[in-house]
Computed example of a mutant assay.
Amino acid sequence: MPLAAIVLAALAVAFQQLIEWKYGPMGIIGFVALAVGIKARNTMFGGIGAVILVMLLAQSG
């Protein structure tokens, strides 16, 4: 179980670094808002984060 938690944490950090490298600070804000919204079960906050990430992805594509 601890190994799975370490691997999951490492993947989360790697994903966060990828978002920051590719999309800058706004990507981190969107990712954090989405993660906090999911953890807190707050659909409005999570939705705002998802919209920010979708707008960044649409802009780069």
Rank of each mutant, 00 (worst) to 15 (best):
I38N: 05
M55G: 03
A9N: 10
A58H: 05
V36T: 07
Q17T: 07
F45M: 15
A9D: 10
L57F: 11
G49D: 03
L11R: 09
Y23L: 08
K22N: 08
Q59D: 14
G37P: 04
G37T: 04
F15H: 12
E20S: 06
V36Q: 06
A9H: 10
Q16W: 02
L3V: 13
V13Y: 12
A12L: 14
T43C: 12
M26L: 15
G30T: 00
A35V: 03
Q16D: 10
F31T: 00
L11A: 11
G49I: 02
V36R: 06
I52G: 04
Q16I: 10
I52K: 03
A50H: 04
G47Q: 06
I38P: 04
K22I: 00
L3H: 14
I28E: 03
V54S: 15
F45L: 15
Q17K: 15
A58N: 13
K39M: 12
T43F: 15
A10C: 13
A10T: 06
V7S: 05
P25A: 05
V7D: 04
V54M: 13
G61D: 08
P2H: 15
M1Y: 14
R41G: 01
E20G: 01
L53Q: 02
V36W: 09
I52Q: 02
A40W: 08
G46F: 01
W21F: 09
M26Y: 05
A9F: 09
M26V: 01
L56H: 02
T43N: 14
Q59I: 02
G49P: 01
P25Y: 06
A5T: 04
G24H: 06
A4P: 07
P2T: 13
S60A: 13
W21I: 04
K22A: 00
L34K: 05
